[in-house]
Design a protein around this nucleic acid. Sequence first.
DNA 1: TTATATGCAAAAGCTTTGCATGGGT
DNA 2: ACCCATGCAAAGCTTTTGCATATAA
Lengths: 142, 142
Amino acid sequence: VDPEARDRWLEHAQRRAAQAGMRAGAVRMAVMELLARDGQCLISAAQVTARLREGGIGSTASVYRALDQLHALGLLRRVDEGRLARYEIADPLHHHHHAVDERTGEIVSFSDAALEAAIEAVAARLGFALSSHDVVLRGQRR
Amino acid sequence: VDPEARDRWLEHAQRRAAQAGMRAGAVRMAVMELLARDGQCLISAAQVTARLREGGIGSTASVYRALDQLHALGLLRRVDEGRLARYEIADPLHHHHHAVDERTGEIVSFSDAALEAAIEAVAARLGFALSSHDVVLRGQRR
DNA sequence: TTATATGCAAAAGCTTTGCATGGGT
DNA sequence: ACCCATGCAAAGCTTTTGCATATAA
């Protein structure tokens, strides 16, 4: 949907991973490429594993490890929903949040300047240096 | 911290549970009382069970069932963090959100009118009839 | 009396870890 | 060579379920 953002993130992620002393293993590379392609909206570890399996590589353990490592580097955002963790690429230029349609389970992503401003104002009032924040809306779409 | 809110919620919860055909079992009653007392800020199922055990009652199964039932009735709010679910009483008069200090793990609750207004505006723009929403801030308190 | 509640133990679901092997640099 | 990465299987944790028993109404 935004080829430039994909490439930008992928290159950034690969550089960052290398800096951190990581090597170009097949699974983590594939995870990064998959997320750059389809990780603009939340995807679960199981989904990632399934997709990699289609290409003949990937195990649960390696996928979880790769996701954890990338998340630790701040390259991924993780959203916990029930007992499932889902990930998406952390792209400062495409900051957004999610609204869940309770009827269909569909997830709509959105961004809103006024909302961001309100959050920053709250953080300032609380004396918090924010490192991240999440907003989840739930309801029915008309 | 707000005795009136506790009693208000507890009475409301008991009435609502009775309406739903639930009986006054020992565990669910104790869970409601505990939450009315200490559930103004997030508490986990394990913590609830431990507290009840001190009083000689409660099992994991019953506590989970009680929490699920109360949540289904809209009496509790659930916040998922990692693989842990935590609950607090849903009190419309004390609507609030949470900020997590990443250094200490401490959870600070806050409420903010401007933030709520921004959220409602976003929902309207998206065409969502909101049933609930969550905001989680993470960072370092100075 | 009859449907709900409870407890124990077992199962389930997602995630993590141990360990031997394979692979990048 | 050295250390990181991977896969499998086993373990871990939280949560759910089955089932027999106890209890509220």
